[in-house]
């Protein structure tokens, strides 16, 4: 049958739901093993962070969509956490294979990494439900419905007080780690990526400016690259 925006949205939801309904709300045994292999076990921090973000996300979702939607926000958050755990485990498996190490203590105790990964998982869930779109984008399922546009990207960055530049870092690894994402969701993430690269990362206060300054101060800018590289 021909692909329509409604059919595409339904496919995205069904696919994601079937993946996430078969998994639990807690880290899998394998993911726990990665936590236990760390020099500093991140388990308690991971769980505490999720508890805090659960409150913040549900409240902000309710404010944006409507007070009666706090429950809906909680449901989205639950699905987002499941996806966060699945993708984190897949990323760690891939890193273990690539680096031949099992101790990811530094990464797994990095709050920005967890926040970015969780934000990306929630962005995927909201995009699957047609809640996150782009006001000037080509696939705004909400049409004139203000509720559907209030949680549009980069709304999630404000909720978690996350720098766009840090969110950008997880997108490609997320898509690699979860290869069954529907093409509409991949397209959505790519649009987020483009928005960050073209606009959001250059806003006042972005950590990108400090990084560029550090690069310049370290003399990296003076090094001339060969045409091949």
């Amino acid at each position: 049958p021909p692909q329509t925006p409604i059919r595409a949205a339904m496919t995205s939801i069904q696919q994601l739901r079937s993946d996430l309904l078969s998994t639990g709300d807690q880290p899998s045994t394998n993911l726990y093993s990665y936590f236990e292999n760390c020099t500093v076990d991140p388990t308690q921090d991971v769980l505490k962070r999720l508890e805090t973000f659960d409150q913040e996300f549900s409240q902000s979702f309710g404010q944006a969509v409507g007070p009666r939607c706090i429950v809906l926000g909680k449901q989205r958050f639950t699905l987002g956490v499941r996806l966060y755990y699945i993708v984190m485990e897949a990323m760690l498996k891939s890193e273990e294979k690539r680096l031949s190490v099992q101790n990811f203590s530094k990464l797994l105790n990095d709050s920005t990494f967890h926040t970015s990964l969780l934000a990306c998982a929630l962005e995927v869930v909201m995009a699957a439900y047609g809640e996150s779109c782009f006001k000037a984008g080509g696939y705004n399922h909400g049409g004139g419905d203000s509720a559907a546009t209030d949680v549009c990207f980069p709304w999630i960055l404000d909720v978690f007080n996350l720098a766009a530049f840090d969110f950008y870092k997880v997108i490609e690894s997320f898509i690699k780690a979860y290869p069954t994402l529907s093409k509409d969701i991949v397209k959505h993430l790519e649009t987020c990526e483009n928005l960050i690269m073209e606009r959001i990362a250059w806003r006042t206060g972005s950590p990108l400016f400090e990084l560029l300054k550090q690069e310049h101060d370290s003399g990296a800018a003076e090094q001339v690259e060969t045409p091949a590289s």
């Binding site: 990323m91 891939s94 890193e95 690539r98 680096l99 990811f104 530094k106 990464l107 990095d110 920005t112 990494f113 870092k169 997880v170 490609e172 690894s173 898509i175 690699k176 093409k183 509409d184 991949v186 397209k187 993430l189 790519e190």
Partner: peptide, 21 residues
């Protein structure tokens, strides 16, 4: 199908992106 452009090299994993390598 939608073809995402993967730009990272093989030596650039999530650990490097968060300076945790």
């Amino acid at each position: 199908s939608h073809d995402y452009h993967f730009g990272l090299e093989d030596h650039e994993g999530i650990s490097e992106l968060f300076d945790c390598d």
